[in-house]
Amino acid sequence: MIRFNCDYSEGAHPKVLEKLLQTNMEQTAGYGMDPYCNKAAGMIKDKCLRQDMEVHFLVGGTQTNLTVISAALRPHQGAIAANTGHICTHETGAIEATGHKVIELSSRDGKLTAEQVAETVKSHYSDESREHTVQPKMVYISNPTEIGTIYSKKELFELSRICRENSLFLYMDGARLGYGLCAEDNDLDLPTIAQLCDAFYIGGTKIGALFGEALVVCNEELKKDLRYIIKQKGGMLAKGRLLGLQFISLMENDLYFEIATHANKMALLIKEALLKKGYSFLISSTTNQQFPILPNDILVRLKSKFEYSFWQEIDENTSAVRFCTSWATSPEDVRKLVEEIENG
Rank of each mutant, 00 (worst) to 15 (best):
K154Q: 09
G61V: 01
M53I: 12
P75V: 08
E272M: 06
E221F: 04
M53P: 00
G110W: 05
I150F: 06
I283S: 05
K122I: 07
V216G: 03
C88D: 00
L242P: 03
C324I: 10
G212L: 04
E115H: 09
N166W: 01
A320L: 07
S160I: 01
G61A: 01
A183Y: 05
Y171Q: 00
Y201P: 03
K239Q: 14
T329W: 04
G180F: 08
E115D: 11
I69G: 01
A238H: 08
I314K: 13
I341Q: 08
S284D: 14
N83W: 10
C182Y: 05
L255S: 08
G42Y: 08
S9P: 02
D315G: 00
T145Q: 04
G11T: 03
K277S: 03
P292W: 14
S129C: 11
D297C: 06
A94E: 07
G93E: 07
T287L: 04
C324W: 05
I150E: 07
A12T: 02
G30K: 14
T64Q: 08
K233Q: 12
I2F: 07
E96G: 10
I248Y: 12
I270R: 04
A81C: 13
L17Y: 11
T23Y: 14
V216A: 09
K39C: 01
E91M: 15
K101V: 10
S284A: 12
G148E: 07
A79F: 03
F306D: 08
C324A: 09
R164W: 06
G234R: 13
K305V: 00
K153G: 00
H262W: 07
Q246D: 13
M43E: 07
P295L: 01
V217W: 04
E332H: 12
P14D: 02
L222D: 06
Y279K: 03
E307N: 13
T98R: 15
Y151L: 04
L269Y: 07
T261E: 10
S126Q: 15
P331Y: 10
Q51Y: 11
Q77I: 09
T329V: 02
H90I: 02
F211Q: 03
A214P: 09
I341N: 06
E26N: 13
K137R: 15
A71K: 15
I87H: 05
S304W: 02
P295F: 04
L222N: 09
L268G: 06
T205S: 12
M138F: 08
S326P: 04
G93L: 05
I314M: 12
N143T: 01
M33N: 14
A71W: 02
G32M: 05
N317Y: 15
A82N: 05
T145E: 09
G99P: 13
L156F: 07
I259Q: 00
P144K: 08
L255Q: 08
